[in-house]
């Protein structure tokens, strides 16, 4: 069974962390992953840095810029991930824009993903239609779960289409915006989370964009199966380094009632 599916079946709300590969230092990738696992993180998204990250706010833009400046490349990332599965058992996905993957060669990219033990891909600018026509069979061949995004503006018919295509989870973007943008969740988000929950989709949903602390994580996971923290984690990493990660993570999970 794919590690993503196992993690989603667990009887607790899933905490997923996104970080940019090659930031703050080029060789931080594995140390960050191991620290996250040790501190109870359930799933990890490694950001493959891109020069023009359209869907990202200033924090991830800046971390991507620095990562590229540090010398991060697609091949370098795969080199760093050699031996990942000797030490890490939680699901790991790569989140990246399509162009670097296209230049690497999509098949070769999938092949390398399987070799190092990547479980799924999030490619924000590879739309459903292109995926279906050209890549669905290829990703499946290498056991990779493709994760699609939905937003408060996504029409119901499209959500159902995405649901039927998804085998991992659906990435619920909390509000119209780029990453790192929102000031907490209000009534609009709660109604949206509720609306999606009522659709009874077969695919579990994980909320991202705007989760930054215990309160937003709890709000996001009231109806969804999990939450993803990206920009807030990167900021913390930049401010206080890897040593501060345990405290940051225990802050997210505190007061959480088990099993809800």
């Amino acid at each position: 069974m794919n590690r993503i599916n196992s993690a989603l079946e667990a009887d607790k709300k899933l905490l997923s962390i996104y970080f940019t590969a090659g930031f703050p230092q080029l060789d931080d990738t594995l140390p960050i992953i191991e620290t996250l696992q040790e501190n109870g993180v359930d799933m990890i998204e490694i950001g493959l840095p891109f020069s023009d990250p359209l869907a990202d706010g200033p924090t991830i833009q800046e971390s991507s810029r620095k990562a590229l400046e540090n010398g991060m490349t697609t091949s370098k990332l795969f080199e760093q991930l050699e031996g990942l599965r000797d030490r890490v058992h939680i699901p790991v996905l790569i989140m990246g824009y399509f162009n670097p993957i296209l230049q690497f060669g999509v098949r070769e990219f999938c092949q390398r993903c399987r070799e190092v033990g990547i479980d799924g891909l999030i490619i924000p600018d590879l739309p459903v239609e292109e995926y279906q026509c050209h890549y669905q069979a290829l990703f499946a061949e290498f056991g990779l779960r493709m994760v699609f995004l939905i937003t408060p503006q996504t029409p119901d018919s499209r959500i159902h289409q995405i649901d039927s295509l998804s085998e991992g989870f659906i990435y619920m973007v909390s509000s119209p915006g780029v990453t790192g943008g929102t000031e907490g969740f209000g009534k609009t988000q709660t109604e949206y989370f509720q609306r999606i929950a009522q659709m009874q989709l077969k695919t579990p949903q994980v909320v991202g964009f705007g989760i930054k602390d215990q309160q937003t994580f709890q709000q996001a996971t009231e109806f969804a199966q999990g939450g993803i923290i990206g920009s807030a984690f990167i900021k913390e990493l930049e401010r206080s380094g890897l040593e501060a990660v345990p405290e940051f993570l225990s802050g997210i999970r505190k007061q959480e009632v088990p099993g809800t």
Binding site: L102, Q103, D125
Partner: peptide, 20 residues
């Protein structure tokens, strides 16, 4: 080389690694 920029698949100037 062929690649993706601003939502379009087209010819674009990029590094070997696909950075624009």
């Amino acid at each position: 080389k062929i690649g993706i920029i601003h939502g379009s698949k087209t010819l674009l100037m990029q590094s070997e690694d696909g950075q624009i």
